[in-house]
Design a protein around this nucleic acid. Structure first.
Length: 276
DNA sequence: CACTTGACCTGTCCGC
DNA sequence: TGCGGACAGGTCAAGT
């Protein structure tokens, strides 16, 4: 699902809606989505939510007992909040985990494809989490300099630019949509080998990544099928996407039809005329 | 170590 | 209308 802009939107929503709420109960219907020791779950009841944050595409919800609820939405996960007196479409058959708060409000973790998960971790377990430790720089942070980007990419010289961008240890937060969009803006063919990139290509790509992610955050992310923010609302980036999901439609720059191929095992959209 | 592919799941869409 | 296959916003474990 959700890539950096969608996760950023969700985290902002959590910080607006669930801070200070006290967990009254946790229920789940799919064990793999909630792989936690019963004693740890028990210890979480009665704890309150301190803050939400993001590392790449992972969501962190800190509790007041120094534990953190770590969530990955994978392809089709959603986190949807519901007020006590509110009517909503959830829970439904995709609801995997439900957090009940003491004031009667709820937070649903829904996931059609069952790839995502919710894990309760101690501060030590969080600090030692290998996936989080290995994440590359966050493209929206000041640490994401062009020099660091180039250096990280250079570990993947023999693969396609697209495969390198999808590698979360190179840059944290890009997925299939924003890779295609950034490569269009940078005028680079997705199947180019990393080793063929010039200094100018790196400059354009670094800039394009930041630009497209910032724009999508402004528009609340992208909704293709499943993505919803915490308030159950869709994102609108795809209304103005350059290539993603626009196969056969005219390029917004040159009017040639957008093409779709397979790169790094993923559907990949591009403009043959604009990208080299 | 780096690269590619299949697996994890459910649902939808497209061609016959 | 039904059915099979491909594909869908991600990551990990295997294989080479």
């Amino acid at each position: 699902m959700p890539e950096l802009p969608e996760i950023e939107t969700i985290v902002a929503g959590l910080n607006r809606l669930v801070i200070g709420k006290i967990i009254d109960d946790i229920t789940w219907d799919w064990a793999k989505a909630f792989p936690n020791d019963p004693a740890v779950v028990d210890a979480t009841i009665g704890r309150s939510i301190v803050k939400a944050s993001r590392m790449g595409k992972a969501i962190l919800i800190d509790l007041d007992n120094t534990t953190t609820i770590l969530i990955h939405l994978k392809m089709t996960g959603q986190l949807v909040f519901q007020e006590a007196d509110q009517e909503g479409p959830f829970p439904d058959k995709t609801t995997r985990v439900t957090l009940d708060f003491t004031d009667g409000s709820l937070l649903y973790f829904n996931d059609q494809r069952k790839f995502g998960w919710v894990k309760i971790l101690t501060s030590t377990e969080l600090a030692n989490n290998e996936f989080l430790q290995k994440l590359g720089p966050d493209p929206l942070s000041k640490t994401f300099t062009q020099a660091l980007f180039t250096q990280r990419m250079s570990r993947r010289k023999d693969t396609s630019v697209k495969a390198a961008l999808l590698d979360q240890t190179v840059v944290a937060g890009l997925g299939n949509i924003y890779c295609d969009e950034a490569l269009f803006l940078a005028e680079i063919m997705p199947d180019r080998k990393v080793r063929t990139l010039s200094d100018q290509d790196y400059r354009k790509l670094h800039r394009a990544i930041r630009k497209v992610l910032k724009r999508s955050v402004e528009l609340g992310g992208s909704t293709r099928r499943n993505y919803l923010n915490v308030e159950g609302i869709r994102g609108h980036y795809l209304d103005e996407a350059f290539v993603y999901g626009r196969t056969g439609e005219p390029c917004r720059v040159c009017a040639q039809p957008i093409l779709k191929i397979r790169v790094a095992g993923r559907g990949t959209h591009f403009c043959k005329h604009c990208q080299k």
